[in-house]
Each structure stands twice: as C-alpha cells, then as structure tokens.
Lab assay of single mutants.
Amino acid sequence: QIFVKTLTGKTITLEVEPSDTIENVKAKIQDKEGIPPDQQRLIFAGKQLEDGRTLSDYNIQKESTLHLVL
C-alpha cells in the first residue's frame, strides 16, 4: 500500500502493486475521493509523475507517500 497526502492534509491509503501505472493510481484516487484523474497531479520526491509510467519506474515502494496537487 502507499499513502497519498492531499493539500488539505488528508491522507488516503491505496492498495497498489509496483506494476501499477500512475494512471491506474489516479483512477483509484477517483474511486475513493471522486476527483477526476485529469485534475490530479501526483508528486513524489519533488517530481511530477507521468501517467504512462509505473510506480516501480519511480522507485515508489510500499509505505511511500505521494503528494496530490489539484
């Protein structure tokens, strides 16, 4: 699982696999929060994550925290 922290300070927990794409993660966030993926920007280690890449591409491991910017 990974954590996604929103600007409001809320933390969302997501069940993911390293092979999941960023697009996939955004879809999971939409399921939980109702935020359309095209409004979501995910930041990890100061980098904006691209939809077509996977979590493992960015070396995002379990218990990692991503930041969600709208």
Rank of each mutant, 00 (worst) to 15 (best):
S56L: 13
V25P: 00
D31I: 13
N59A: 08
A45F: 09
P36K: 07
N59C: 10
Q40K: 02
T65M: 10
K32H: 10
L66D: 01
Q61D: 09
R53D: 05
T8N: 13
T11H: 06
A27G: 11
A27K: 14
S19Q: 10
T54R: 11
D38C: 15
K10I: 10
I35N: 03
Q48A: 12
S64K: 04
G52Y: 11
A27Y: 13
F44T: 02
H67P: 01
I60K: 01
Q48L: 14
K26R: 05
Q39T: 09
G46F: 04
Q48H: 10
T11D: 04
E17C: 14
L70A: 10
I29S: 01
D57C: 04
L66W: 02
K62S: 15
T65L: 10
G46M: 04
T13D: 04
L7Q: 15
I22Y: 01
Q39R: 12
I2M: 05
E15H: 12
I43W: 15
P36Q: 07
I29H: 00
N24F: 14
L55V: 08
L68T: 02
K47H: 13
Q40Y: 13
I22Q: 02
G52L: 09
P18E: 10
Q40L: 06
F3S: 05
V16G: 03
I29A: 01
K26G: 01
G34W: 03
D57H: 11
F3C: 06
L42E: 00
N59E: 08
R41L: 13
Q39P: 02
Q1H: 15
N59D: 09
V16M: 08
F44Y: 13
N24Y: 12
K28I: 06
V4C: 04
E33N: 08
P18R: 04
L7P: 14
V69S: 08
R41D: 08
E15L: 13
I12E: 01
L14I: 14
T8P: 05
A45K: 14
A45V: 07
L14C: 04
D31K: 12
P37A: 15
G52V: 07
I22L: 05
T21L: 10
K47D: 08
L7E: 15
H67T: 13
S56G: 11
E17D: 12
F44D: 02
L55R: 00
A45M: 14
I12F: 10
I2T: 01
T6M: 14
L7C: 15
D57K: 02
F3R: 07
V69C: 14
S64W: 04
K32T: 08
L70W: 09
L66H: 02
G52S: 12
A45E: 15
E63I: 03
D38M: 10
K62Q: 14
E50C: 14
I60P: 01
E63C: 15
K10T: 09
T65N: 04
N24G: 09
I29N: 00
T11I: 14
V25I: 13
D31E: 14
P37E: 07
I2E: 01
P36Y: 05
P36G: 06
I35M: 05
H67A: 07
Q61V: 12
Q39I: 11
P37N: 07
N24Q: 15
G46N: 07
H67K: 07
T11G: 03
E17A: 09
G34P: 02
P36S: 08
Q39W: 10
Q48R: 07
E17L: 11
E63K: 07
L14N: 00
E63R: 06
V69H: 11
Q1K: 11
I2V: 06
K32W: 06
Q1L: 15
L14V: 09
L70S: 11
L7M: 14
K32S: 10
T6C: 14
L68A: 02
P37V: 14
A45R: 12
G9A: 04
K26A: 02
G52I: 08
N59S: 07
K32D: 04
L14F: 05
V25A: 02
T65D: 04
L66I: 13
V4L: 05
D31F: 12
T13K: 08
T13H: 07
I43A: 05
T65V: 13
E33K: 05
L55Y: 01
F3K: 06
G34Q: 06
F44H: 08
I12A: 02
K26P: 00
V16R: 02
K47N: 11
G46E: 06
D57P: 00
L70T: 12
G52P: 07
K62G: 15
E23H: 12
T13W: 08
T11C: 14
E23I: 12
G52W: 12
N24A: 14
I60R: 01
F44V: 04
E33G: 05
N59W: 05
R41K: 11
L55T: 03
E63H: 12
L14P: 00
Q40C: 08
L7V: 14
Q1Y: 15
V69Y: 13
L14T: 01
P18A: 12
K5A: 07
S64C: 08
D51C: 06
K28M: 14
E33P: 01
V69E: 11
K47T: 14
